[in-house]
Each structure stands twice: as structure tokens, then as C-alpha cells.
Amino acid sequence: MATVKGEIVVNTERCKGCELCVPVCKEKTIAMSGNLNSKGYHFATSTNDDCNGCTNCAIVCPDGAITVYRVKLKEEKIN
């Protein structure tokens, strides 16, 4: 059971579709969307819930289009 959960938010207008973020995602969360932004680029998007917030995609993004969030999952005590 994962103890952390991450989420990414891609600024789709800033993304230029270079795909550098796709191979660095070990969880295969990030992929290129079939949709286009206003400049005509296929932007990156989050495709599943496996993100662990490792920030790899965000630090290789040349355009700084990705914001990464991470929360620790709290274990509920069972009496």
C-alpha cells in the first residue's frame, strides 16, 4: 500500500509537447494528450492515479509547465 499519493497539474497552454517528461515517469502516469492546445501542441496530461509525486517530470520540463502535489496517506487506527 502506497504511503504517499501525488498529483500533477499541467499548464496546458505552456506545454510545448516535447515529451521529455514521458520516459522519466516511472509510474507511467504522464502521457501526451490527443487534444491540442491553442498553439497546436499535444500537451502532457495525467492518465492514471499511480503518481507518487517524485517531481521527475517537473524538473526536466524545459517550460516549467508542471506543478507537482504530494500528500502522505494517514493510517486510520482500527480499535
Binding site: 498529483e7 517531481t55 509547465a65 502535489y69
Partner: peptide, 16 residues
């Protein structure tokens, strides 16, 4: 997802 991204304290990386 909405609960995670609405709290800015959860940000671990954003554009400077």
C-alpha cells in the same frame, strides 16, 4: 485529486 490540488501546502514542485 481535487482535494490534493486545492491545498497549496501539498505543492512539492512548482515553477519559480
Amino acid at each position: 485529486r481535487e482535494e490534493i490540488i486545492e491545498d497549496h501546502d501539498n505543492v512539492v514542485y512548482e515553477r519559480t
